[in-house]
Design a protein around this nucleic acid. Structure first.
Length: 479
DNA sequence: AGGCCGTACTG
DNA sequence: CAGTAC
DNA sequence: GCCT
């Protein structure tokens, strides 16, 4: 039974849960969670790569320790660290973490004080009134736990988009009548138009958040109020649909709408952009952003045609093994390296860029440019499917400069004069360092590209969103 | 060596 | 204030 | 645990 990436990711998630129960360093826990996400999203089959004896690509967030664990798991099917942790924490306890209101500290108290290890045991303890006797728990918590288990054992229900939208429309109409409300909108997976919706995320702006929250909780269809405060409130409708409301100041509306629309994965990527330093904002909305490390394309990525990429010197797209980067829009760059990749990664440039320079594919210091010129040629062919490299390199590199000097060039293995591969000698000065690239959200268009090349395009859901400065957090005044 | 997002609600 | 959730 |  081959080990899949998802199995490795699940093992890391388990380790994270168990470490959390042991009160471990939260950043260490997060490191495992990050690793689980990276491995889980990775297209490259890690176990197969290891079995074939090929080197693993450098994966973000995975250092020597975690790589060793991946290798161990891929070759033996076991992870000693995980098994040791499992011995130290009773089986089934990690399930309890999924209940609302129960985190590592409380779960630990439950199994240490009450010897509660499973959901049914917990339900019994709650009904017997044993939980309220523990410090940190009260009668209300106990009741909520019992309700949550009953609900969870009953159904983990998601709602079809069209159904959820009806609930949302009615609620939004209700919210519009709340005191002082200016904007109301649905965010979350509903706004992303996912096929099913687990809960509703609503957003409102108003000077007095508490008043809006109170109005919200008085909605006639509410079955239970989970919480209600100054800026947010959560309820469960009679249908079982949970609804979370956020109230923010008017000036935070754009950022909040973006943030609460998600997805979470998108927000994580956006956060990278938010951490970058923006400079030289221009009147037309262009900004320059400098990243602290090379920009990596870690998943198969398509850059839509309406996005104009302008890569400045020192900007590099790193394409991981097995990953495909497709550029549909215009691409501008100088005569310096802007791409790097290893193994079977590929870059396809299909856009209307005026030129594709061989130098875009050189690492610094290389004198035999043959392989890189091949890559330049390959990149310009327009593919609809992933093909093996030997089958394509038909179209030539598009050259715009009148003359080039060719040096240190060898054509081998079938490269016999059909293709005029070009290099510029003596002035390659690409420095691997902080990449710089330009990001533009075009006026009236529907897509933006964040720093790692991730496409964020949800049909026309964002058609009215004007982005001036992209920062990740509510209150950053980004919209 | 030292940072790793920041803040609100509950008990 | 600690714990939890987003 | 990872990264700078």
């Amino acid at each position: 039974m081959p080990v899949k990436n998802a199995d490795i990711a699940a093992a890391f998630e388990q380790i994270a849960d168990l470490l959390e129960l042991q009160n471990a360093n939260p950043f260490r826990v997060r490191a495992y969670r990050n690793a689980a996400r990276v491995v889980g999203e990775l297209k490259l089959d890690l176990a197969a790569t290891i079995a074939a004896g090929r080197p693993l690509p450098k994966l973000p967030g995975i250092g020597s320790d975690l790589e060793a664990k991946i290798r161990e798991f891929a070759t033996t099917g076991r992870m000693a660290a995980l098994e040791r942790l499992k011995k130290e924490v009773p089986a089934g306890v990690a399930e309890l973490l999924k209940l609302p209101g129960l985190g590592p500290k409380r779960v630990r108290a439950l199994y240490e004080e009450l010897h509660v290890h499973t959901l049914p045991q917990l339900l019994r303890a709650a009904r017997d009134g044993r939980i309220r006797s523990l410090p940190g728990f009260g009668a209300k918590t106990e009741q909520r736990i019992a309700e949550a288990i009953e609900r969870q054992l009953g159904q983990v229900k998601r709602f079809k988009l069209a159904i959820a939208a009806q609930y949302a429309d009615a609620l939004l109409a209700h919210l519009k009548r709340a005191p002082g409300v200016v904007e109301v909108a649905a965010a979350g997976s509903l706004r992303r138009a996912k096929e099913t919706v687990g809960d509703l995320d609503l957003l409102a702006t108003a000077p007095d958040g508490a008043a809006v929250c109170r109005h919200f909780t008085q909605y006639p269809d509410v079955a239970e109020v989970l919480q209600s405060g100054e800026t947010r409130a959560s309820v469960v409708l009679k249908s079982g649909l949970q609804v979370d409301l956020r109230v923010v100041p008017q000036e935070s509306y754009g950022a909040a709408l973006m943030y609460f629309t998600g997805s979470k994965a998108h927000n994580i990527r956006l956060r990278r952009l938010a951490q970058a330093v923006f400079t030289n904002e221009s009147a037309s909305g262009w900004q320059q952003v400098t990243f602290a490390s090379p920009v990596a394309v870690t998943a198969n990525t398509t850059i839509p045609a309406n996005v104009h990429l302008k890569v400045l010197q020192n900007g590099i797209f790193q394409v991981a093994d097995g990953v495909k980067l497709i550029i549909n829009g215009p691409l501008e760059a100088g005569p310096h390296q802007i791409f790097s990749w290893s193994g079977s990664g590929a870059i396809f440039i299909r856009g209307n860029c005026k030129e594709v320079l061989a130098e875009w594919f050189y690492p610094e210091g290389v004198t035999d440019h043959t392989d890189y010129i091949k890559k330049a040629v390959l990149a310009t062919k327009q593919f609809d499917s992933y093909e093996s490299a030997k089958d394509y390199w038909r179209p030539p590199v598009i050259l715009t400069k009148p003359s080039y000097t060719i040096a240190n060039l060898t054509f081998g293995g079938g490269w016999t004069g059909d293709y005029y591969a070009i290099s510029l000698v003596g002035r390659l000065s690409n420095h691997r360092g902080a990449p710089v690239l330009w990001v533009k959200a075009g006026s009236g268009n529907n897509g933006i590209v964040v720093g790692d090349g991730t496409n964020f395009q949800d049909n026309n859901l964002f058609e009215n969103l004007r982005i001036q400065k992209v920062g990740g957090y509510p209150g950053d005044n980004t919209g």
